[in-house]
């Protein structure tokens, strides 16, 4: 340990990132620029989230890392290992036991509580980018709360698909002020952004932006009066644990096209099976 800085980054850098985080918490939903550092992994691997996590970790923390809800993907495993090695922190797969959770594309199903920190990996922090590529202009739009363009995007969705087809990175308004990209979580997760007891931090490495939602922040998904927001999911129950209210992945199970639906949150699913819940294809007591 003595050869390395705790959690890889030097203290100077962590201080700089913490300042950005504090500013983000003070102005919920506002994108704070920060000087993103080279990390020993490619940008697509969530270097923004990793830097935020590194700046938040203390030796007493217990870290959980998920990718699309799963703790066991290559991405999640390597980030978890990285912090085990560089910070020596304890790790866990149980949402309820983690103090810091770094995530890509999901919010855990198990409700978070006060004291927990959820760190999102963000590829494109600017929700207006889709229609306005000029950075000077989008910054001006945020400053002056000129958010009509966000609804143009939703209008285009309805005009083309008959309904708001945006399923991921569904834009939200924070405390009636800043419009924010919640990172590519499914819109099913959007309601969990709001009034959440945990601290939610968003890190975009390549784009060098950090933003935040302090606990119990009001977050509203944008919509039209006649096309209200819907937190939709596949109309099935989990085939393993029978949950009817969790976000599901569709899995092809053989080359004849058979498919099953399983919770994308692996910890949630395993916990339910361990508690005796059984789905259509699950075997009682099959949980490890």
């Amino acid at each position: 340990m003595s050869d390395y800085n705790f959690a890889y980054l030097d203290e100077q850098t962590k201080r700089m990132i913490r300042r950005a985080i504090l500013k983000g918490i003070a102005v919920p939903g506002y994108q704070v620029p920060f000087a993103s550092r080279e990390m020993p992994m490619p940008y697509g691997w969530g270097t923004g989230g990793v830097q935020v996590t590194a700046a938040c970790l203390t030796p007493d923390d217990r870290l959980k890392v998920i990718d699309q809800g799963a703790d066991d993907t290559t991405n999640a495993v390597s980030i978890r290992k990285f912090f085990q090695r560089s910070a020596g922190v304890a790790v866990t797969e149980a949402t309820a036991e983690a103090t810091v959770i770094q995530t890509r594309h999901r919010i855990p199903e198990t409700p978070l509580c006060e004291g927990q920190i959820l760190v999102y990996q963000v590829p494109i922090p600017e929700p207006l980018r889709f229609l306005e590529p000029r950075e000077t202009e989008t910054r001006k739009m945020h400053e002056l709360e000129e958010y009509g363009l966000m609804h143009v995007k939703l209008y285009e969705d309805i005009a083309r698909h008959g309904t708001i087809a945006t399923a991921y990175a569904y834009p939200v308004k924070v405390e009636e002020r800043y419009v924010m990209d919640p990172s590519p979580i499914p819109k099913f997760d959007n309601p969990k952004l709001s009034d959440n007891p945990a601290i939610q931090l968003f890190g975009a490495g390549r784009e060098q932006r950090i933003y935040a939602l302090p606990p119990y922040t009001q977050v509203v998904s944008l919509d039209f009066e006649d096309h209200p927001f819907e937190a939709s999911k596949a109309p099935h129950d989990c085939d393993l644990c029978g949950a009817g209210d969790s976000y599901l992945d569709e899995v092809i199970t053989d080359d004849r096209g058979s498919r099953m639906y399983v919770c994308s949150d692996t910890d949630f699913c395993a916990g339910r099976r361990a508690a005796g819940h059984v789905g259509r294809l699950g075997q009682p007591g099959a949980a490890e």
């Binding site: 000129e146 609804h151 039209f224 009066e225 006649d226």
Partner: peptide
């Protein structure tokens, strides 16, 4: 929409 219209129809 820039001046606040929020009804798609």
């Amino acid at each position: 929409m820039a001046v606040g219209a929020r009804n798609y129809g």
